[in-house]
Design a protein around this nucleic acid. Structure first.
Lengths: 233, 233
DNA sequence: ATTATTATTGTAAAAAGCACAATTAATTTA
DNA sequence: TAAATTAATTGTGCTTTTTACAATAATAAT
């Protein structure tokens, strides 16, 4: 078979920014890099794109390798291609971000990569241009979460409205009036109230809710205001 | 210098979806592909990423090659990496979309690529997965234009409000009430009313406006509703 | 002068967003 | 067992934004 001669080939990698929520703050999952350069330093989970796999497949493989999880929310973020971003050899990286239920991950943890959750705000310095990747991912989820219900991907199947509000307040670094927040999310029609309560967080206990998956898929692309005064983000 | 041994290298391309507006409908600029495979068929303008250039540089180079234009609105759209998308050899493509003032381009046209503007709705079949690229670009500009003032990039420096409205109506395939549209765009504070009128489009003539670049840059990221009922797009 | 065509302007009703506080349910403590 | 504590739950009025809707003004063509 013919080839495109005279063109330079290069390495293509996928890096994953993996977000989780512990009930208090937004976190990202980092690993200690296992090979040179920058061996032993904190890094995003990543890997090279293999000859027979698509980019999405590559990202899913990498995510599963680290977390054991499949079917989690995964979205292509941006492709980073500064010529010198990897000092060894030119490598272009397609960044993906993932939103995982942190508790599911903890159940499946594999210690091969010395992975650790860090508060997004207190994460260590990362290698190469990964700092920029994380920053861009942070902006993207804020942007998207302001209008679309993606943050539910960070919560367990059953969750309470106060938990949900804490999540939004954490992501947007703000405080929201309880009454208005409750009205707002219930008005979306995405939530189903369950019979039982979460007694862990309070004395009275808060009702559990779960997503109405029908409406969730149907309305995912619709514009809904989840935060007050979304003039800019 | 050390290399990442045992990893497969591949070709990386950039393809540009170039949008223009002729006063009536949204158009895209296509070329007749000059080499095999698919030689002579309609295609996006693209090229391989060179060893020493970033992706943005590559996209700008490709855009300039075809249109002669520099400094136009250019944004990374998505990276396409299905293993078989190019039948000759695995090539991953980073798609960019550009918004150009169609009249500026016409002034600078270079005939090397047999380029032609097509109505977006009536464009010919494209090679490889470029149909999908165009569709995704169309979605992206609709999405973004609903909230951010990107469509001004398609207009000349001086434009009238009826022209602007026609553009929005074309992009969103809808009709908008004149009074409400005018109020809406003027309320953004992005427009400066000029003293002279455009007499071409009507007997009475419509006042020209231009962008207030201060406000434009400052408020670009803010959420502004440019179309009514933006429930979903 | 009349006609035709498009630009320009205003207002009232409806909907959405916002600020704001009292009550309820359950546990813990006195 | 009563009282205190803690967090969840619920409602209303005000403000702002959005929407629906029509008459008038400016100019060119006849």
């Amino acid at each position: 078979m013919l080839k495109y001669s005279k063109q330079t080939r290069l390495l293509l990698a996928v890096d994953c920014i993996i977000f989780g929520f512990d009930g208090e703050v937004l976190k990202i999952l980092l690993i200690k890099r296992g090979f040179q350069p920058e061996k032993g330093n904190w890094s995003l989970m990543g890997g090279f794109v293999q000859p027979d796999e698509s980019l999405d497949q590559s990202a899913n493989r990498i995510l599963k390798q680290l977390t054991g999880l499949e079917g989690v929310y995964l979205e292509q973020l941006y492709t980073f291609g500064q010529p010198q971003r990897d000092p060894i050899e030119r490598t272009v990286s397609v960044a993906y971000f993932a939103l995982v239920d942190i508790h599911k991950y903890e159940a499946q943890i594999s210690d091969d990569y010395h992975a650790e959750w860090f508060q997004l705000k207190r994460a260590p310095k990362l290698i190469f241009d990964q700092q920029e990747m994380v920053e861009q991912a942070r902006k993207r989820i804020r942007y998207k979460a302001a209008m679309h219900p993606i943050l539910f991907e960070l919560l367990p199947t059953k969750f309470t409205i106060p938990q949900l509000q804490t999540l939004y307040e954490s992501v947007f670094n703000t405080t929201i009036d309880k009454r208005n927040f409750s009205k707002r999310v219930l008005a979306t029609g995405l939530l189903i109230k369950l019979a039982d309560k979460d007694k862990a967080g309070s004395k009275r206990g808060a009702y559990y809710y779960q997503l109405n998956m029908q409406n969730y898929y149907a309305k995912f692309q619709a514009f809904m205001n989840f935060i007050p005064n979304p003039d800019s983000l």
